[in-house]
Design a protein around this nucleic acid. Structure first.
Lengths: 239, 239
DNA sequence: AAATTCGATTGTTTCAGATCAAATTACTGA
DNA sequence: TCAGTAATTTGATCTGAAACAATCGAATTT
């Protein structure tokens, strides 16, 4: 539906209009104004809480964040992981439906909601962003609803391998791509468990199992060397 | 972020621009043109398959549809239920990421993707629609990742009670709202199971349990009379 | 360097939900 | 109305992941 090719909203300044926008909208002044509206977070800082008034949008410029929801008894579900170029802070109503917390040091670009809703170009960009998040959510829904613990952890690991994870997760190696890669988890076992709908112990056991099978090496607690990407890929339930 | 109040895109014809759009965009001609571009489906007709080329958007005018994804071994996860006023057919890339199937007889309004991407007003509307779907997906993610079978089925039943389900699912009855309601499931046990990440047997057992506890009465297979909405609401895990 | 702390791992037991297997009930079309 | 079929319910058993319980190990503090 949309054919623009930008990958970051903060790159938008001074750019030509998208292909998608056939009309010649005048470049909204807002577009050039948000430079310097940056914000920094340390790991585990909360950017906003579920229920807070939603007045700003954010783009992750550097680092990793998560969105999560809590049940009254303390159960937590991480619903989305945000990486460089991802946007957050959307809301349909007046308040956020999730809590946003930094997983690592984070640098954000801040936008006032008005800036977005008054700029068709930004609107269009945000749209693309929402669609991409939606597809990832659909995929994650399958993971949570239908996959085993082994499949969940394998899928998670694959999602950390550029161009192999989320979407273009093509099967066994067609071209001569390297079949090995070190990935940074940027998450504790607890955070991974809350993302994958498992317990910390199950995540740990699956990781140990993959280690024993010789598919991965745990370099540091949050850094895993995948020695056999194809092998992991076969375990995702998608091939 | 967005303040428009329309609830159906097909109502858009001849309407004044949204509050959110401060600029004076000329009313795009497209807006008046899609009248009559309707499509009808029978129950279990597939509108499009995952992987099909995405060229049209659809609005559900009447009936219920579902979006689902399949794993290669046949496991299915229903990722979204679409009701009157919902839109489907969005895609970030060129093809659909889910299969869309009618659960009941359905009447659709059809839009060419171009109609949308060239109209800021429609773009804005679609945006709102995506945000609302996103919030429901977040909530469903919590259900799949963290809720018990009893909580899942109860949450599902509550989602069928207007103004009590999804969002404004307020707790026990504050005002004198009626605490009883007959809801149409519009889905088989298998479809419910695939939506809730359970098996058909577990769904059936939970329904029997609720029946035994006197919280619901099964009128027809796909029509349930909730005799104690508050009671069900307490079982959703959200109170 | 020892002590403390926090996260991760590993072992054991338990249990919710899956699987397998009938039996029952509800629809369909002649 | 009555087969015949499909969907649902119910029962029995099994199993994967949760829960509970140490233990281990790495990082931080003193």
């Amino acid at each position: 539906m949309v054919s623009a090719t930008l990958t970051k909203l903060s790159d938008l300044d001074g750019q030509a209009p998208f292909n998608g926008c056939q009309e010649n909208f005048k470049q909204p002044e807002a577009a050039g104004k948000h430079l310097g509206r940056k914000q920094r977070l340390s790991a585990h800082d909360v950017l906003f809480y579920e229920g807070d008034k939603a007045e700003r949008l954010y783009e992750v410029v550097r680092g990793v964040m998560m969105l999560y929801k809590l049940l009254p008894d303390g159960r937590r579900q991480v619903v989305y992981i945000l990486r460089e170029g991802d946007m957050l802070g959307f809301s349909n109503r007046d308040f956020f439906d999730c809590t946003a917390e930094a997983l690592t040091e984070v640098e954000l670009q801040v936008f006032e909601s008005r800036e977005i809703s008054t700029s068709p170009m930004m609107q269009h960009y945000v749209n693309r962003c929402l669609l991409s998040q939606m597809e990832i959510l659909h995929e994650h829904t399958v993971l949570l609803g239908r996959k085993s613990a082994l499949e969940r952890v394998s899928t998670f690991l694959m999602s950390l391998v550029p161009n192999r994870g989320g979407h273009g997760c093509s099967g066994p190696n067609e071209e001569g791509r390297p079949d090995t890669k070190t990935v940074a988890l940027s998450m504790t076992r607890q955070e991974i468990a809350d993302y994958l709908g498992l317990t910390i112990e199950t995540v740990s056991r699956v990781i140990s199992q993959l280690k024993r099978r010789g598919l991965i090496k745990v370099e540091k607690q949050d850094s895993i060397h995948i020695t056999n990407i194809c092998g992991i890929c076969q375990l995702t339930g998608m091939h």
